[in-house]
Amino acid sequence: MLRLTGAGRRFVNGTIAFADIDMRIDAGEFVVLLGPSGCGKSTLLRLLAGLDVPDTGTIVWNDGTPPAPGDIGFVFQDATLLPWASAEQNVHLPLRLAGKSFSETRNEVRATIAQLGLAGFEDAKPASLSGGMKMRVSIARALVSRPRLLLMDEPFAALDEFTRHRLQDDLHALWREARTTVVFVTHSIYETAYLASRILVMTPRPGRIAAEIPCPLPDPADRRTDPAYASLTAQVTETLRAVMPA
C-alpha cells in the first residue's frame, strides 16, 4: 500500500526524531509500531498521515496517488472530540468537512456508531461519556469516511485495563471483519502481541526500526488465553531486550 524509504526527521532544536527508516505497509495489515516513549513513533505516524514531511527520504503510495481527505483516519491518544457537539455530530464531522450534510449521510453515521457499540448514545455530549466511550466515538469518527489507512497513536494508553481489553477486543473484531489497513503505535507489549499482524520494534532516539516480528497468531475465540499469545509476548520481550540499549 505504501513504502517509506530512508525517512528521517530532525526537530528544529536539532534532536533527531528518527533516521533512515525503511518500512512497507501492505493493504489489510495490522502493523504495530512498538517502542519506548520518545522513539519518534508519533512523529512517524504524523508523517504517514501527511501532517508532517520528512527531512530525508520518500514516502510512496503504491497506486501513485497521495491520499485524499477522508482516505486516512487518525485516532489520537486523547479522544479529542468537539466538546460542544454530540457523539453523533462528532462522528459526522469528517463527512461534514467533505461537504456532506447529516441527512444525506445519516445511514453511514448511524451504522458506524452502532458498529462501535454506541447505539443509544447518539445525543450524548462528550463530557457525559466515560473515557472508553469517548475513545469509541473517536474511533467511529476515524472510520466513518471508510479510510484506506487507519492510524492510531496510543489510543488506549489512558484507559483502565478492563476498558482497554474490551476496546482491543472490539478493534480486533472490526479489523478482522473489514481488513482496513491499520498502523498502531503503542508501548505495551501485551497490546502489541494481541493486535498485530506484524510488529515493528523501534529503538529510542534517534529512532530506527530494530526488528520485525511476524505474528502468525491464530484467530481463536480467546486469543488472550491462547498459549501462542503467551509465547508471542515472550518472543517480543526477548527481542526488546536484545535491541534496546542498556
Binding site: A49, L51, F74, F76, T80, P94, L97, A98, S145
Partner: peptide, 19 residues
C-alpha cells in the same frame, strides 16, 4: 490535535473558523 484532524479531512479556512 483537533486542528490536525480538520487538516486531515481537508477542511477549508471557513470550516475551520466556524466549526
Amino acid at each position: 490535535e483537533l486542528a490536525d484532524l480538520f487538516r486531515l479531512n481537508g477542511a477549508n479556512r471557513r470550516q475551520t473558523l466556524f466549526l
